[in-house]
Simulated assay, not measured.
Amino acid sequence: MNRRDFLQNTGIVAAASVLLSKSAVSMASTKNYKMGLQLFTVRDEMAKDPIATLKKVKAMGYQDFELYGFDNEQDSYYGFKSSQFKTILDDLELSASSCHYGFSPYLERSESALVRFVDQCIRGAQALNSPYITWPWIAPEQRTLDNFKRMAGMLNKIGEQVAKAGLGFAYHNHGFEFEEHAKVGGKSGQKGFDILISETDPALVKLQMDMYWVMHSANTTPKKLVEQHPGRFVMWHIKDMDSLSRDYTELGNGSINYLNILPDPAKSGLEYYYIEQGGNFAHSSLESVASSAAYFQTQLKTLI
């Protein structure tokens, strides 16, 4: 091949590479995620005036929410019947893609009580047109290996019940799932997370990754977890960790470098993400979610 042909061919390859690169960027950006907020972050404001609070966080750029505090006997969220709260969201052009429901007590209750509770959660989620029901937490005294094994079976049954209703079901991690339990019979100690992820059906039980707790307690990174379990983490919680206290803090103020640890959304199976800060606000919850929204929009939004 002479120099002229070589230059022509390499030029074609270079041009093709640019086109492929642009195409890849275009494909990556076709999933237009709404900026989400876990409303527990502004629980003090939601307790005072839910509608005014929703308007304020909407003005910051939040469009989608994960709820908490469902009253299953009253079929209500934040004091409003499910259908009323859906109307409020619709009027504000907002959505609620998930809610954290109070499953923890049902580890101690009958199977029929659990089935009834799940049915109530399903009715609430359907009224909101909310695609996910999420198990968020268990009490400290419940965090035993036997309970994690029981939970795996429960999660599968709940996931099956929820799937039959046309909805998705997920489990949300904290840090305690990554704690190693005492060694038994010379074997290395087990972790609750390993039990839950290995003994649940990926088709029925998805995972909501709390990235703060992964960085705080798991001795790994969100990116590595996704590499190990692709397609399983359909939701993310994004929050930062104070460099000294390791408590929560506003995005961009802490020690978690999301530019380095954010997983590939497609490989993760990501459908929704929520910014969250459980406490330790610099001034107030509303100022903190405004600060986090500004940081996310300028620094991280293009990565998701």
Rank of each mutant, 00 (worst) to 15 (best):
70 F>H: 08
94 L>S: 07
119 D>S: 15
59 A>F: 06
103 F>V: 10
87 T>N: 12
93 E>F: 09
133 I>N: 00
112 S>P: 09
151 M>Y: 01
92 L>F: 07
91 D>S: 15
97 S>N: 11
130 S>P: 02
76 S>C: 08
95 S>A: 14
139 A>G: 10
71 D>W: 09
74 Q>E: 15
129 N>A: 12
112 S>Q: 15
76 S>D: 03
72 N>R: 11
97 S>P: 02
123 R>V: 03
140 P>T: 07
68 Y>C: 06
125 A>L: 03
93 E>I: 04
92 L>K: 13
131 P>T: 10
110 S>A: 10
122 I>M: 05
63 Q>C: 07
123 R>T: 07
120 Q>I: 08
141 E>T: 12
135 W>V: 02
120 Q>C: 11
137 W>Q: 01
86 K>Y: 02
96 A>K: 02
78 Y>Q: 10
64 D>N: 15
147 N>I: 07
88 I>P: 00
82 S>I: 01
84 Q>Y: 04
152 A>L: 08
121 C>T: 06
100 H>C: 09
99 C>F: 13
121 C>H: 01
115 V>K: 15
145 L>T: 13
79 G>A: 11
59 A>M: 07
121 C>P: 01
147 N>F: 04
128 L>E: 00
121 C>N: 03
135 W>N: 06
101 Y>W: 10
140 P>Y: 11
77 Y>D: 03
95 S>E: 11
149 K>G: 04
146 D>M: 09
